[in-house]
Design a protein around this nucleic acid. Structure first.
Length: 817
RNA sequence: GCCGGGGUGGCGGAACGGGAGACGCGGGGGACUUAAAAUCCUCUGUCCUUCGGGGCGUGCGGGUUCGACUCCCGCCCCCGGCACCA
């Protein structure tokens, strides 16, 4: 018999799909007049083109491929594009290391990864391919930046920013993990620099509230975004420094504890510290402390185990609710970046304030108690209806939520404060001092100041430079001729902005460009984008839960506000796949635990690789790679191959189909379809296919009808097609058919799902005792009689009284004795 | 500390309130073969057994239910996010 040769079969079908444009979906000439055939947009996160495709890619794109194939065969038009997130540091660092231009390195890597993707047989509309580093793409990234700028959503300001000393560039807050650069792990340092920002904070509420528009996102991703945005509601309360008219506002989420304030603290960086201590006895000590705090790294300072430090300023602030004087301290446990950089110290009801007060012997006062009046140890931080105010003047006795409302209302009426909302989210720092990114399309004119480059002068092309090495300023600055330009407004001398954009800007709108990838008038036509989007199913790694997904949502909302598109959320359904690990760790070159998909494909074929990566376990869970696991899949494919050839050889088989094997095939159709569609579960359908193939072999052995074997085999081939499209096409053809990818997805015959008989489970006191095959449709009484007659049941019941018999028709009988 | 997810054989995992461990890997035994590979058959949670079967088993302790891996309450442990965020 002809051996199963995946290499030959896969090559043949990949060429066929290419030749027949199998997965190309053209845009309608007039989106508004387009037919109402159902359509969908299945998207996976675009790859960064390093030279090698890795297991994460294989997993990600195979998931999307299975979804796409099934949808297509159900009559849905599926848009499934692919592109490359090609700007960024790895290509640039390679250019520095090995010489050459980052563009050449990127292009080489793209060619390589494209070849590998084709080799996997993924059903992609390759006519829509885009690369973010291509001028025809970044022209529109720049165009969008200018729209943001006009809308006041892109701005430049000097601010304390995070600087990576290794990559020699500033970073967005989102790119700093535990005080370290997300990319290289170097400890970041704070610098005061003038930089470009996107005003994402203006969208903080909408990024939270419009989560309600999402159809299906993993809870953990929503949680991460909520945590990241970090909205907390509270009040701003104004304290006045005694003996001056200096006002110090504080932000608090617990205005109900104002009566418990016994001290006041400023962050060391607070700009009023200097004024307050000028020419006082404490000036020297405070300056020393501030200097000392400034030398502490962010990582050290974030250590909550560290003992609290601080220094008294000699000044007092007046508590607006009771006119008490509170000593003003300076301490680095108060952060300048959050709230107002000043807090009221309420040691009775805040763990940090408690620690500080204990350390420096400050008064600790209780103003909240459990609602039942029971005694409690301080600090008591409960803030629900389980707590109530005490010793708080007119607010005493109110439960905490009401006390907060009442006191905020009172503060507002007295002009002492107001309700406010605090966020953890910071504006998105988008400028980078690196070469391989989209230039920010702005010029600096001595006369006119910042001037945007006019649309008709886009793209601002990257200049050619010799040295990509970062030196603390953008390598673009070395291209002196490029930098020197004329002001678009006054025609006078001007200098180009030399920073480039964060690559996350590029990937914040690529999914829109796919809809209209060759448009040279606009980034995309609104009607076409509204025709295809929002994305119905987005699939990618959970590592993008905050960065990319938050930025893309922000971009979409802004573009919606600017009238560029007609929806507010880009991705209605999100699926985050788990990580593939080996020896308990993420695969990485430095750990030397990488399994190359290429090698697996060479040895077992793309079909086996595709099936195995989905068979490993639930798609959302992290999974440990075992080399031996793929052997079982290889056996399955080989068994199916031999079965297919035998059936094809036997030719047309007529005869009776009413056999158990045919029922099994129909049950498998129902199971596979339900798992894929309703449960979004990809590994259990493969188990069902194993069972079906095993059953076919068994039936053949027991000389089942040839017609039934043929039907079951064709069903298995048809069902495995989304997973193993090459083998499935080949067998489908040999079985005398045409193109399986155009064949409707099978539907189970309801009559075939009906059973003539079933195994009745018999329990005594809820424990399984026996089972018996009985006809379907018997009365409850008849089932009980059948069950009672069983010897193993009788021996269990033996002498005891049957108090009750629970009958679940078609399933079981349970005797309670 | 707050928020989210999870804990089932040697391993990956299945079980959608009703048969715990489907399916696969690994392992034992056997057939075919001069031999090996491939292929095929068979056993494989655990303890007891007179070989009929029986006891125990889904992190721990309670509860709801005729019946709980599944639902509820309280713990323990692991993973992820946030965190001196006031």
């Amino acid at each position: 018999m002809e051996r199963y040769d995946p290499q030959a079969i896969e090559r043949k079908w990949q060429e066929t799909w290419e030749r027949e444009q199998a997965f190309v979906v053209p845009n309608p000439a007039d989106p508004q007049a387009a037919d109402d055939r159902p359509r969908t947009y299945v998207l996976e996160m675009l790859p960064y083109p390093s030279g090698e495709l890795h297991m994460g890619h294989v997993f990600n794109y195979t998931l999307g491929d299975v979804v796409s194939h099934v949808k297509r065969r159900q009559g849905v038009i599926v848009l499934r594009p692919m592109g490359y997130d090609a700007f960024g540091l790895p290509a640039e660092n390679a250019a520095i290391r090995e010489g050459g231009h980052p563009r050449e390195i990127s292009e080489r890597n793209i060619d390589s990864i494209r070849r590998q993707m084709h080799r996997m047989g993924w059903s992609i509309d390759w006519t829509r391919e885009v690369s973010t580093s291509d001028p025809t793409y970044y022209r529109w990234t720049q165009w969008l930046f200018l729209r943001f700028y006009e809308a006041g959503l892109a701005y430049r300001k000097e601010a304390p920013v995070k600087w990576c000393p290794n990559d020699q560039t500033v970073l967005a807050n989102e790119q700093v993990i535990d005080g370290r650069c997300e990319r290289c792990g170097a400890e970041v340092v704070a610098k005061n620099l003038e930089q470009w920002f996107f005003r994402i904070t203006e969208y903080a509420d909408r990024l939270l509230d419009e989560m309600a528009l999402l159809e299906s996102w993993p809870e953990r991703v929503l949680t991460m975004q909520r945590n990241w945005i970090g909205r907390s509601t509270g009040a701003e309360v104004v304290f006045r420094v005694e003996g001056t008219d200096v006002e110090l506002p504080v932000f608090t989420t617990r205005p109900d504890t104002l009566f418990g304030a016994t001290f006041f603290v400023l962050a060391p960086e607070h700009q009023l510290v200097g004024d307050l201590i000028r020419s006082t006895d404490t000036e020297r000590a405070v300056i020393d402390y501030v200097g000392h705090a400034g030398a502490t790294t962010a990582v050290e300072r974030a250590d909550t185990e560290r003992e609290k430090t601080g220094v008294f300023t000699g000044r007092y602030a007046r508590n607006p609710v009771n006119d008490e004087l509170l000593p003003i301290w300076v301490s680095d446990y108060v952060l300048m970046e959050y709230g107002t950089g000043a807090i009221m110290g309420v040691p009775g009801h805040d763990a940090r304030d408690f620690e500080f007060a204990t350390r420096f012997g400050l008064e600790i006062r209780q103003v909240v108690e459990p609602a039942d009046g029971s005694p409690v140890e301080l600090p008591y931080v409960e803030r629900t209806t389980g707590a109530r105010s005490m010793s708080s003047g007119q607010f005493s006795g109110l439960e905490t939520p009401e006390a907060i409302d009442a006191i905020v209302e009172w503060l507002e009426s007295e002009g002492l404060g107001k309700a406010t909302v605090g966020y953890r989210l910071r504006d998105w720092l988008l400028s980078r001092q690196r070469y391989w990114g989209a230039p920010i399309p702005v010029v600096h004119c001595e006369v006119c100041g910042l001037v945007p480059v006019p649309d008709d002068q886009l793209p601002v092309l990257l200049p050619e430079v010799d040295d990509y090495k970062p030196k603390g300023r953008s390598p673009l600055a070395a291209a002196e001729e490029w930098v020197r330009t004329t002001c678009p407004e006054c025609g006078g001398p001007a200098r180009r902005e030399t920073d480039t954009m964060d690559t996350f800007v590029d990937s914040s709108w690529y999914f829109l460009r796919y809809a209209d990838p060759r448009n040279d008038q606009l980034p995309f036509d609104r009607e076409i984008v509204d025709f295809w989007l929002p994305v119905q199913q987005y699939i990618g790694g959970v590592e993008h839960a905050i960065l990319h997904l938050l930025y893309a949502r922000f971009f979409t909302k802004v573009m919606n506000d600017l009238g560029l598109l007609g929806f507010r959320e880009p991705f209605l359904r999100l699926f985050t796949q788990g990580m593939i690990t080996r020896n308990g760790a993420k695969m990485s070159k430095s750990k030397g635990n990488v399994v190359s998909p290429d090698a697996m494909v060479e040895r077992y074929g793309a079909d086996a690789m595709r099936l195995y990566i989905l068979y490993m376990g639930p798609a959302e869970a992290d999974k440990e790679w075992h080399d031996s696991g793929i052997e079982g899949i290889a056996r399955l494919l080989d068994r199916l191959w031999r079965l297919g050839l035998e059936v094809a050889d036997a030719g047309r088989a007529d005869g009776d189909l009413g056999l158990e094997l045919v029922r099994t095939a129909h049950r498998t159709i129902a199971k596979v379809t339900d798992d894929l569609e309703r449960r979004f579960q990809f590994h259990t359908p493969i188990a069902a296919l194993f069972e079906l193939v095993n059953d076919i072999y068994r039936a053949k052995e027991e000389s089942g009808s040839e017609a039934a074997v043929r039907f079951a085999t064709e069903t298995a081939v048809s069902l495995i097609q989304p997973y193993a499209p090459h083998l499935a096409e080949e067998l489908w053809q040999r079985l005398g058919h045409e193109r399986l990818w155009q064949e409707p997805w099978p539907e189970p015959d309801p009559a075939m799902l009906e059973q003539a008989s079933f195994d009745l489970v018999v329990q005594v006191n809820g424990k399984l005792r026996d089972r018996v095959t009985v006809a379907v449709g018997l009365s409850d009484e008849a089932l009980v009689e059948h069950a009672k007659a069983l010897p193993r049941v009788a021996s269990q019941v033996d002498g005891k009284e049957i108090r009750r018999a629970i009958v679940v028709p078609g399933k079981l009988v349970n005797f309670v004795v």
